[in-house]
Design a protein around this nucleic acid. Structure first.
Length: 333
RNA sequence: GCCGCGAUAGCUCAGUUGGUAGAGCGCGGGACUGAAAAUCCCGGCGUCGGCGGUUCAAUUCCGUCUCGCGGCA
């Protein structure tokens, strides 16, 4: 009888929705985010098959070809026929960034919807998630040149000079940026010079997909200790799978772009190749840096209060995790 | 059994000519709009092995005990 009651309320609600907002016809977009080594990829494939979804990678490094092992890229077999977007799309020598990501993703979402399928965003890049949800302002094409100049100026005259300049031009931004944060100081100045307005103003002009679609945002939450254990084990496995060989060939065949050279796993090995430390140390550093990365990811996701958290236990299989998400999403699908 | 050496932050150790201590690593927290797996910020009271003695004051000196390492028997 409780069931009957529930049914009635639901009908009423649906009727009301139809009358008022267009909410009902908003198309769905599902996210699975969470720290590295948390089991997102396999879980996503299972879920995708269950709900007829195509997967879009929300990851800043898996876009690179030939960087497979250290980025823990999903293999063709593991994809099980589920379409994956934004994996293996550019060479390691090419640059990639959030704006590019956003542009491509918004296009893919529309295409997938056209096919009557659900876009399933999967990844751990917090900024990418946030920009997609809330949008980005349009940049000016000249800004790249300006950045180069500012970069040179910082080397020449010191970062303090640039920071002081920012304090004059955009005090609000200067207040929020630490005087040692070179990246952000240069970016803020670059925006000011190219757009003729403070970055803080520019940031207000944006539109993301959060309001455009019915977004279901899930985060995989795992106990820290267990996560670290998984990371350490996974790095060991990477070495067994030929990480060193992959890094060697990457080193020989490509000059990595700035964005690609940030990838964990390769930079530590490159330094080992140069003789800066031994292999044991390289491995230790990869594990440590990956642990730190996971922690930073958690910092990002923890402050995102739109995330619905799915608790992952050590004994949970990807099938079970996908089940938990499905159960939660069922009513909303 | 004897002779050395050591015992200080989770780990490796530094240090205090006696006024209750600090680096590295590990770890924790945070910021974040075009390199984001990047960049940057913040975080260390710990019975200085136990007990006793000297002293105004001991983690620092002395004695003793316990444990660890090395050497000699």
């Amino acid at each position: 009888m409780t069931r009957h009651k529930y049914k009635v309320t639901r009908h009423k609600l649906q009727a009301r929705d139809k009358l008022s907002e267009k909410k009902v016809i908003k198309k769905k977009v599902i996210f699975i985010v969470g720290p590295t080594a948390g089991g997102k990829s396999t879980t996503a494939v299972i879920l995708a098959k269950k709900i007829n979804a195509e997967i879009i990678s929300c990851d800043s490094m898996q876009v690179y070809k030939h960087m497979d092992i250290a980025t823990a890229k999903i293999t063709k077999e593991e994809m099980q026929g589920v379409k994956h977007h934004l994996i293996d799309i550019i060479d390691p020598s090419q640059e990639y960034n959030v704006a590019l990501f956003r542009e491509k993703v918004t296009r893919f979402i529309k295409e997938i919807h056209k096919k009557k399928l659900i876009p399933l965003l999967v990844g751990g890049s917090g900024l990418y998630m946030q920009i997609l949800l809330d949008g980005i302002f349009d940049d000016n094409k000249s800004s790249f040149k300006i950045r180069k100049k500012l970069d040179a100026k910082a080397d020449e005259k010191g970062l303090g000079v640039l920071y002081n300049r920012l304090v004059e031009l955009d005090p609000e931004a200067a207040k929020a940026i630490h005087s040692n944060d070179r990246r952000r100081i240069i970016r803020a100045l670059e925006v000011f010079y190219s757009l003729n307005e403070p970055i803080t103003e520019a940031k207000k002009k944006r539109h993301g997909i959060w309001n455009e679609y019915n977004v279901l945002l899930y985060g995989l939450s795992i106990e820290r200790k267990l996560l670290y254990q998984r990371i350490n084990e996974r790095v060991d496995r990477m070495f067994q799978d030929g990480l060193i060989r992959e890094a060697e060939s990457l080193c020989e065949n490509y000059s990595l772009s700035k964005s690609a050279s940030g990838a964990l796993g390769y930079k530590e090995l490159f330094n080992y190749f140069k003789g800066e430390y031994d292999l044991i140390e390289a491995k230790r550093l990869i594990k440590r840096n990956t642990r730190r990365y996971a922690k930073k990811q958690m910092t990002w996701f923890n402050k995102e209060n739109r995330i619905e958290w799915i608790d992952v236990l050590g004994s949970d299989t990807p099938l079970e995790i996908a089940g938990k998400i499905y159960k939660n999403a069922e009513n909303k699908l």
